[in-house]
């Protein structure tokens, strides 16, 4: 494990639309696959945007790979996918990848490698708008994987996909994490919790639990994460 944690957040405060969405958040994220789980509107995207360096923050510090979030040194070390796939629907798959590779200063071969890693090699010439939702999401993922970033930030990449695809994507996240990339994935679907090495449960802008899924369940004395979430919210358990 690298001595520098992937993300370190201290006293983060974010105001959106006049209200404080996140207020005084402290958090450390390390290696492996970390899942950020919480209901819609709890602030997952806001937190991920802060880590990616595209969110205006009111106070606090966000340190990514030892540098301030969003600083120039991080621009080719953090792969980010927004909640929409953030690719061009009117371009072919490979055209998308080659464009982003060029922006990153990577050779065209990097585009093919990223395509292969999401199992879309045969689809390189297809216009993204013609792909299924799952394939489109994988193109977005391939762009985030370009140049083997040290941190991968993915905002709800598995939402709305069929169970087989979701399983395959989580397997991919683990393969990427095994190469030393820290992977941070958000979801509002609680049953994805078991697939993470580390779990962050979020509610109303606060992290209410941080640990391995097994630890969180054991601490609350419950059998599944959904029950653990309820127990934490209702103030039972150790929390």
């Amino acid at each position: 494990m690298s001595p520098v944690s992937a993300v370190e957040i201290a006293g983060l405060r974010v105001v959106r639309g006049g209200t404080a969405v996140i207020d005084g958040l402290d958090l450390t994220i390390g290696a492996g696959v970390t899942g950020l789980l919480g209901p819609s509107g709890c602030g997952k995207s806001t937190l991920l945007r802060s880590i990616a360096g595209v969110q205006r923050v009111a106070a606090g510090t966000v340190t990514v790979l030892g540098e301030p979030a969003g600083s120039a040194a991080l621009r080719d070390r953090v792969g980010y996918q927004t909640q929409s796939s953030s690719v061009y629907d009117d371009l072919a798959v490979l055209e998308n990848l080659r464009f982003f590779a060029r922006v990153l200063g990577l050779p065209p071969a990097a585009a093919e490698a990223a395509l292969a890693s999401v199992d879309l090699t045969g689809q390189g010439g297809v216009v993204v708008g013609r792909l299924s939702g799952g394939q489109r999401s994988r193109v977005g993922l391939a762009v985030a994987l370009l140049g083997s970033p040290a941190l991968l930030v993915l905002d709800e990449p598995t939402v709305g996909l069929d169970p087989v695809l979701r399983r395959d994507l989580w397997a991919l996240f683990h393969r990427v994490a095994d190469t030393g990339t820290a992977v941070l994935v958000s979801s509002h679907v609680m049953d994805e919790a078991e697939r993470c090495d580390t779990l962050l449960l979020m509610r109303e802008g606060r992290i209410i639990a941080d640990g391995a899924p097994g630890e969180i369940k054991a601490a609350q004395g419950v059998a599944d994460i959904e029950s653990a979430f309820l127990a934490l919210v209702e103030g039972r358990g150790i929390a």
Partner: peptide, 13 residues
């Protein structure tokens, strides 16, 4: 609105 600008801003652009 599609997120591509946001993504580009996390890159060296």
């Amino acid at each position: 609105s599609g997120g591509t600008l946001e993504r580009l801003f996390t890159m060296p652009m």
